[in-house]
């Protein structure tokens, strides 16, 4: 069979201790059965490890931070498009998604396809709105509130109680055991991610995650649930195992059916001592552990690419249960000239 070759731009090349999903996404794309790929890395920093992983990425370009605005990003992507003729871009950071969503139709005009959530979907599932989301769709969500001033913490102590979760708008989450800690974490998060900060009721239990893909019409194309087996001090799974839990899969189907979710996603859940699932977060993109899904038979990056190109991949029926992913870190040796080239020219 002659396979088409697609040129795909991928962000999230920061394969660090709190990794971006880019490298895992690229591994999935490289193993795609229905097409071959040329991978173009899109990096924000000169030391994102993916830039130097030439076995996975053919060429990488520096792109401007979302905070510089969509015009700067569009200009850069137009330049990159002239050089590379991208067919697809898969953005992998929460914080950049808004910019890419805004540019979706303009990028399509120059031949770049994406498959992203709608603005409504993106906003509705936001940490800040998660409590409302749970009520609307009948999904258990821990009580939470977004605040803009640390003095507001005091007002919510009776409802949320300590310990409580203090979460950043985009990233970071801390468990605060008293008001002093809550204030400290509030300030730490504001300095990094800005306002608002989310206070959320703490649920004690075991962490489960589901990665999946919705086709935008209410159909679930892929879903793989995973139990975190080893968690880093940043709360990231360093090892996990695929599990078979019909309740989790039904919850995932319900999420996709009721929201008509478009694109990749990750559900973060906590199973309390009495066996009840609480939806803690919905990440509107593919997670860093997605290679487990690829490894158990559901190549989500491949299916997402096909959806981006307007094709209709069939839903994955099953996956292997009891397969583990175990992450590792690895030191690459990189010649100074490469680092220098990327720093000066913004491409390598």
């Amino acid at each position: 069979m002659i396979k088409p070759t697609y040129t795909i731009g991928v962000t999230g090349l920061n394969a660090i201790d709190s990794p971006g999903p880019g490298i895992a996404v690229i591994r999935g794309l490289r193993e795609a059965a229905s097409f071959d790929v040329r991978i173009i890395g899109l990096a924000y920093e000169t030391l994102e490890p993916g830039i130097y992983m030439h076995n996975l990425i053919d060429k990488t370009y520096l792109i401007p931070y979302p905070s510089t605005g969509t015009d700067a990003l569009l200009d850069r992507l137009i330049y990159i498009q002239k050089q590379e003729k991208l067919d697809i871009i898969i953005p992998n950071f929460d914080a950049e998604l808004y910019s890419f969503m805004k540019l979706e139709s303009r990028l399509k005009d120059i031949g770049i396809h994406m498959f992203l959530p709608t603005f409504d979907q993106f906003e509705e599932r936001h940490k800040v709105n998660l409590s409302k989301f749970g009520k609307k769709y009948g999904i258990n969500v821990p009580e939470g509130i977004a605040i803009n001033d640390p003095s507001e913490i005091y007002k919510h102590i009776d409802d949320l109680e300590f310990p409580m979760m203090i979460k950043g708008k985009w990233y970071d989450a801390y468990i605060a055991y008293n008001q002093d800690q809550a204030r400290t974490y509030f300030n730490k998060i504001v300095a990094k991610w800005g306002l608002p900060v989310v206070l959320q009721k703490f649920v004690h239990g075991t962490e489960y995650n589901v990665t999946g893909l919705g086709d935008g019409e209410g159909n679930l194309i892929a879903a793989v649930p995973m139990r975190k087996q080893y968690i880093t001090d940043k709360g990231k799974a360093w090892a996990g195992i695929s599990i078979d839990d019909e309740e989790l899969l039904e919850l995932t189907r319900k999420f996709v059916r009721s929201t008509g979710w478009r694109g990749g996603f990750e559900l973060e859940l906590m199973k309390s001592g009495d066996g009840k699932y609480f939806l803690m977060e919905i990440n509107p993109r593919i997670p860093a552990w997605v290679y487990l899904a690829v490894g158990v038979g559901q190549n989500i990056p491949e299916a997402l690419s096909l959806l981006a190109l307007g094709q209709k991949p069939t839903s994955f029926g099953s996956y292997d249960v009891g397969k583990l992913f175990i992450r590792y870190s690895w030191d690459m040796i990189v010649d100074r000239s490469e680092f220098q080239n990327f720093s000066l020219k913004g491409e390598v």
């Binding site: 075991t206 489960y208 995973m226 139990r227 087996q229 996990g240 195992i241 695929s242 599990i243 078979d244 839990d245 199973k271 249960v321 009891g322």
Partner: peptide, 9 residues
């Protein structure tokens, strides 16, 4: 022992 429903071993 592996419990596929919970991932515990």
């Amino acid at each position: 022992l592996f419990n596929p429903g919970t991932g515990e071993s």
